[in-house]
Design a protein around this nucleic acid. Structure first.
Lengths: 349, 349
DNA sequence: TTGAAAGCGATACCAC
DNA sequence: GTGGTATCGCTTTCAA
């Protein structure tokens, strides 16, 4: 309704200078008890709130963090929005959303610079890293979430990242499946060029090789639900030659895999086919699936992200790549060690 | 790295006044072809971008829309973030996220006013409406998403909303279940005081009454996954007295219900129990469930929201409540009309 | 159409 | 500790 009151208005009412008002609302400033009280009272009575725009104009910090994502189909990402936003809010920061399919990075860069964004979190395997480079170029701190800077020397010297120990996670999966007696183990890749996929697959194949086991089949699902369904149909197309287990590059696709396995092919999971995912999507998503998966803790990743952001906002901080530990959680989509030998082609009644 | 160039810098390079630069970047302004060209070239060569903070300071509009949500467990909401954010981005607006559990509305209000937010979208049944009132009080347009202004005269005169036709949706569900021959029909409520729940239940009970059918059982799940699981255990606790169908107030809970039904109780859906949800959560969430549900189109709801926001940003706009049509989509969680009579207590092998 | 000058609402540096 | 004043980068009169 009415125009919002300014520091000037408050100053007049409290019989102090406008500077005094400013100081009262500046955490570390030196104000006498008395002045602070009078200002506080005057401010409250007028409903005064400092204008963030005016403040950012002079401080050159907006207390806004840009969160760049592509699409939110994967259940893991809403969780990231929620946790990151909450955590930043508590520290007086805010999250400005950018949905980008990865092509129109120029527009996004423009907007990021226009808004004096204090930092950028890029969370999505789909996004190219040119935006990250451009931000770094303009002196805006960038943290890559769940992905690693590309191999260019430039990227490695400018860009920070938070990832989980994808390689180790991949290794754990191979070891689990082998220990459970699986012998026809398939791998369903996400986006082949994404660092999450590369590392997960690397750990996996390393451990397989170490045990003298070959990867029985491999297909690519591009981290999409439909892609994963299609890939599953391919891998399990020939009844006599079906894998008896699949390591799927993320939970989102793993759910799609289980859908096809149980729904279209009439196979039982875990009895006929073992399935292991990666990410730890919230319970609401996997509820019915009882998905065995490698868990990366969103909380820890978000905490590290915020820490990195602050770090990178310092004058001449060096970029840092934080790796968060991850671990296997067995629900029941892999058969127990004591189970009878695999019968991958059998249909249940 | 370097400090960003200002309009002053561009003006100097282009040999024009700073005003000319400003005009060049102001859509409707009057600038000669020549000046505009020189400014554009100079701006590009310097990498100039108008400072949004300075602009908002004087125009009193930030081109930022606040999106207030509580928690994102329900798959429906990430979709809203995605669509809304995309749509607003195309129009030069941006979404600032606020995660609020509904209690600390004061802090949120402060921040909304500090940032000169142009409009607020409140999307979450959990949030109290005091925030909406406070915003309206301060002249910030508010659109309630998927909920209706409370009954106070004040709210109805200040607050706009977008909802789907929840009442009609509820009615459709009752009619479907009755037509399919179900006779022990239960209702699982969400948050009892939320308008979505109230309306869905109202339509449902009305249609039931009209057909002289009684609601067989009723429980409350508070729109949470765990709440819904617990409620399901209660309603289906006595083997001989189990409902043969449930209308669940939203998809998110419906998935939980089906988990318990199939996983814990060994019942078949839809053969033993019919389940119908409401919301249309993305495929990735219901994939395995084949959930029959009442669909409300996120696209339409978002489009209406954006339209309302613009409308409410006009000088003296009147609030408006938009109702979007919704319709039943049958997948296979309700048995076909030709199916044999219900056998709700039977377990399958 | 153009440029000069007056703010927008804060912070920061300065004497006092 | 306090008040005055320059300043942040832009939009917006207002004459020219």
């Amino acid at each position: 309704m009415r125009a919002s009151p300014t520091a000037q208005d408050v100053a007049k009412l409290a019989n102090v200078s406008q500077s005094a008002v400013s100081r009262t609302f500046t955490p570390g400033a030196s104000v006498s008890e008395d002045t602070r009280n009078r200002v506080t009272i005057a401010a409250k009575s007028l409903g005064y709130r400092p204008n963030a725009m005016a403040r950012s104009l002079i401080t050159r910090r907006s207390r806004i963090i840009a969160l760049v994502m592509s699409y939110l189909e994967n259940q893991f990402y809403p969780l990231v929005i929620e946790k990151l936003s909450q955590k930043l809010q508590k520290q007086g920061y805010h999250v400005l959303m950018f949905i980008s399919d990865g092509n129109e990075t120029d527009g996004v860069l423009d907007e990021i610079l226009q808004y004096q964004i204090d930092g950028v979190v890029m969370a999505s395997a789909m996004l190219s890293q040119t935006l990250a480079h451009q931000c770094a170029d303009s002196g805006v701190p960038v943290v890559l979430f769940n992905r690693v800077p590309d191999t260019s020397a430039y990227a490695r010297h400018t860009t920070s990242s938070v990832t989980s120990d994808n390689r180790r996670g991949g290794r754990l999966v191979a070891e689990l499946l082998l220990a459970r007696g699986h012998r026809r183990i398939a791998f369903l890749a996400g986006l082949e060029q994404s660092s999450t996929n590369v590392e997960r697959e690397r750990g996996f194949t390393e451990a397989m090789a170490q045990a003298d086991a070959a990867v029985y089949r491999r297909a690519v699902g591009h981290y999409s639900f439909e892609g994963a369904k299609q890939a599953t149909r391919e891998m399990f197309g020939e009844p006599g030659l079906r894998p008896d287990a699949v390591f799927v590059a993320n939970d989102h696709m793993a759910i799609a895999v289980m859908d096809v396995l149980r729904g279209e092919l009439g196979l039982r999971v875990p009895e006929d086919v073992g399935v292991v995912g990666f990410d730890d999507v919230p319970q609401a998503a996997w509820g019915a699936y009882r998905l065995t998966t490698v868990v990366q803790s969103v909380e820890q990743m978000v905490a590290a992200t915020v820490e990195l952001l602050h770090e990178q906002m310092q004058p001449d901080a060096l970029p840092r790549n934080v790796v968060i530990g991850c671990h296997l959680v067995e629900r029941d989509s892999v058969r127990a060690a004591t189970a009878q030998p695999p019968s991958p082609t059998r249909k249940h009644p």
